[in-house]
Write a protein that binds this DNA or RNA. Structure first.
Lengths: 115, 115
DNA sequence: TTTTATTACCTAAATTTCTTAGGTATATAT
DNA sequence: ATATATACCTAAGAAATTTAGGTAATAAAA
């Protein structure tokens, strides 16, 4: 699973959704949360995460806030208003994607998801 | 949906699964089948498809057979034995991916898919 | 007490995958 | 005649990710 190609392209969706649920998070926290939620099956590498966060910030979907914790710097990210809208769009895309994959993989079945 | 990043990385899975269901298919047929199954939502571009087919063949997962139909050449692809094994692996990965996405997106729900 | 692991940020080269934009050729419909 | 559909292909560029680093503080282990 860790090396599955399928994970590619889902990073933005994951980040945005986690920030919808959690108000504010810092990068390292996101990697740990994903590892926790997926029982270690999905590991977000920092080389992918940080550029993705910077890009989302540059696009105006995330805002940042730096905090000092024990002489250590933490950079918290939270959704902007546009970011909140984008989460909904990404969720629609994810739902459509999963339904379409079901149609291809399992023709003759009407999928039922809980979003 | 057409431009969704999520589709990236799923092309090999789609090709292999369709060939498991259909015995043999040619490239153009695959693009049409996907369009049909997804009501036009997923359009596989030929610039992505043909290199993917060639790669799968080079990896020994697909074999080819050329047929003449009305002065036109068709290149049929079918699964090799290794290809058949790989379909199962890809299906496991897809299932795991979808379950993990559900865990991230919808924490506190146990997903139930029909594979 | 020195080393290792964890926390926490980051970048850059290389790889992979896909998009975009072509090219070739036949058959069919307008 | 021209456009659309069928049917194959490639190559440049874009985008996301992997791999492999670097920096620095804290905590745990040897």
């Amino acid at each position: 699973m860790a090396n599955s190609q399928l994970i590619k392209g889902s990073l933005q969706t994951i980040i945005l959704k986690l920030l919808e649920e959690n108000e504010k998070m810092y990068g390292y926290e996101i990697t740990q949360k994903v590892k926790e939620l997926t029982a270690g099956e999905i590991k977000i590498t920092e080389g992918a995460l940080y550029p993705a966060l910077h890009k989302l910030e540059a696009e105006g979907l995330l805002s940042t806030e730096i905090q000092q914790v024990d002489n250590r710097v933490r950079k918290y990210y939270r959704l902007t208003q546009n970011g909140e809208k984008e989460v909904n769009a990404k969720m629609s895309e994810l739902k459509a994607f999963m339904e379409n994959m079901q149609r291809i993989i399992n023709p003759g079945l009407n999928p039922d998801y809980n979003f």
